[in-house]
Simulated scan of single mutants.
Amino acid sequence: MPSNDGSFLDHPPSSAGDGSYRDQERLGQWIAESVLEEASGTGTGDGGGNCYGDLPKDTYFAGSLIPSDEAELSGLSEDLQSKLSPTAIQAEFLFDPRSVDRLTVTVSGNVYYRSFPTYEEQFERSVSGVPSEDEDDHDTDQQKGEFTTVYRRISFESEPIDIEVPDNEIVQEGEAVTTEIRRQVLETLQRRLQERIQSADAANSEPPVWRSMADVSVPTTVQIDDGEGGTQSITIEADKYSGDYQFPPSLFEDIPADVRRTMYESLVEEIASRGGPVKTPWGLDVQCEFYDDEDYVRGL
């Protein structure tokens, strides 16, 4: 039993190295890691690093950033905005300016891009496009098939960024000192992220990157492989609210799985051929400010 002057973890008993204690420690670590992965989208669980159904920014909240222009239009106070939907992450640290003249910063994280779902994601993870037998409304004329919403994760890490520490005399003047940094590293990183999107779109092993409705005129008629050596004409429309593609809900009903796969992959390929991949304008920036803190310098 633990003593009364603290918790079991704070003051482990003399037998802390036994199997029971180690099991508790592992369980605690597993719970903490699971919660963090779920909140930040950094895990590799059932989704395999993909985000299904909602926007990543609406799914993950730990360490999630939004573009600064969205923050300006949110209508929230600056304090509330920084808590609910921050546009930046800040790290604060102290150092002795007499022993440090240069800092090295590495930027890492995850970004997401939308793509068409694979056959498995469309028909095994979701019932999108195939009305459920449990639906109250069986009037298929009023229903539309839609693609499952899928965002795929790309992890990144920049090259080291060197930041020069200003002279201590300048910092001691009382005003914050902002140091210029070499932005070529960030520009290169942004370009490489876009190149990875292009590579994913061109890879036969990956589903195509999402196409904007603005680049694909709808409603439109596409010819797809009917899985039996012929073609079939399909009318594609757009949802008036989300702008997502819609196809006849009965398109994939009551057909063998191999035929359904052929028709589905033909549909995705035909839509993707009518426009270029959506390019997300990710923006990355690093700023470093220095303040006097008695015998030390405080960096932000």
Rank of each mutant, 00 (worst) to 15 (best):
G227K: 07
S242M: 03
G49N: 06
P208I: 03
G109E: 11
V222T: 07
R182F: 08
D23N: 08
Y113G: 01
S205Y: 05
R274Y: 11
Y112R: 01
S34P: 02
S14K: 08
E159T: 15
D23G: 08
V111C: 14
P13W: 02
G19Q: 12
R114N: 02
Q81T: 03
A16W: 05
L76F: 12
R260A: 13
P67A: 08
L186D: 01
G275S: 15
T149W: 08
I236F: 07
Y21H: 13
G41T: 04
S85P: 00
V259M: 14
G109Q: 11
D244N: 11
T106I: 14
F61I: 06
E135W: 09
D239K: 07
T178C: 04
L55C: 10
Q90R: 15
P131D: 04
F8K: 03
R98M: 00
E169L: 09
L27H: 11
R298A: 07
C288Y: 04
E180L: 11
E173F: 05
I89G: 14
Q198R: 15
F247E: 04
A202H: 12
D69N: 10
T235G: 09
D96Y: 00
E180C: 04
T149I: 13
Y296M: 14
W282D: 07
S273D: 15
Y21D: 03
G43C: 10
F252K: 01
Y21N: 06
N4P: 01
G275D: 13
Q143V: 10
D139I: 02
P86E: 09
V297A: 00
E265S: 04
D254L: 14
Y151Q: 02
V216Q: 04
M263K: 12
T140W: 14
R191E: 11
I89K: 12
R261I: 12
R182L: 09
P207I: 04
L284I: 14
S233P: 07
S64L: 01
G299F: 00
Q198I: 12
P256I: 09
A88N: 06
F156T: 11
F116K: 01
H11Y: 08
Q24N: 14
Q143D: 10
